[in-house]
Amino acid sequence: MKLRTSRGLVAIALGTALVLSGCASGNDGGASPSPSESTGSGIPTPSAADVAAVEAITVTGDAGAEATLEFEPGLEVSAPTTRIVNEGTGEELVEGNQVTMHFVSYNGADAAKAGESTWATDSPQSFTLGDPQFDLLNPELIGQKVGTRMLLANPIEDADGVTTVINLVEVVSTKEIPTRAEGEAVTPADGLPVVTLDDSGKPSVEIPEGYTAPTELVVQPLIKGSGPEVTADSTITAHYAGYTLDGEQFEASWDSGTPASFPLTGVIQGWTQGLAGQTVGSQVLLVIPPALAYGSAEGHELQDETLVFVVDILDAS
């Protein structure tokens, strides 16, 4: 998704971030982990020493409450390494469903807690199981059950070098979400980009001949859903497709088959302004001028572009 990075370091912000995607190698700008072997998904394979380091972490505290992690300072791993601490007994975690979790993060260097936990802030986080942005969680959690607690140790590269961050994740709920917008069809205004849906609901866009790029944000509901209203600080789950004004698609969640979840506080302004006030179940056409997209960001592939998005709002919290 062009609104967030799908590889490299993907974070849910809470003080110190819970990092969910592995250190990338090569041109993605992350650390080059060792060993060089990787899983089929491109995630590097942990070494025996990595596995032993994570196995040595002691987890105390009852399920349903914040856990405490104890380990010797200086813990390092060379690749993302996971361990199921407790298997859940609740509903099965199915790819494509929304998963909500609590987590706490520790710094491997000093074994100290890194920021407040989501238990302390009463702010559980949700994501779509199978979303490629959460590629470290997906293979471990698919098929597990609500109540599962999992350790994830991950080497993170920053300006000071590589630091191992250890996260304890506990899944607290899961629910099925729709696969496409459902509601009352809305007749769009004349002259806008024309949206056509295939049998799966994936949109394609035709830009009318002579269409002039707008200087203001265009927000056109195509389907009016009957769900709750989205606010500017909502976290939404959505299918989306994005196009430039030549009609070329540059990215779409439909291509992976999995909707994406993200806070509207962390996306381009055109999304925040255009989707706030819409309702869950709606499909919305956005035509976003550069000032509300990526502007004149030097070197960005969408620099100075007017962008067209079709967004199916499947859930919001």
Rank of each mutant, 00 (worst) to 15 (best):
L3E: 12
L3C: 10
S6A: 12
I12K: 13
I12H: 11
L20D: 03
C23P: 15
G30M: 02
A31V: 15
P33D: 02
S36V: 11
S36A: 09
T39I: 00
T45I: 08
P46C: 00
S47N: 03
D50R: 02
G64H: 02
A65R: 12
E66I: 02
L69I: 00
P73C: 05
P73F: 01
L75I: 04
E76F: 12
S78K: 11
P80H: 04
T81E: 00
N97D: 12
N97E: 10
H102T: 03
V104R: 05
G108N: 04
K113P: 03
K113R: 09
E116Q: 00
S117D: 00
P124N: 09
L129Y: 01
K145Q: 11
R149E: 07
L151H: 07
N154H: 15
I156N: 14
D160H: 15
G161D: 11
T163S: 15
E170C: 08
K175C: 13
E176G: 13
I177E: 11
E182D: 05
V194T: 05
V195S: 01
S200V: 04
S200N: 05
S204N: 10
T212G: 04
L222N: 04
S226L: 12
V230Q: 11
T237F: 13
T237P: 14
A252S: 14
A260I: 14
F262H: 14
P263V: 09
L264C: 10
T265Q: 11
G274D: 01
A276Q: 06
S282P: 03
L285S: 06
L292D: 05
S296R: 12
S296T: 07
A297S: 13
L302I: 09
D304Y: 10
E305H: 07
L307A: 09
I313D: 10
L314P: 06
D315N: 15
S317D: 15
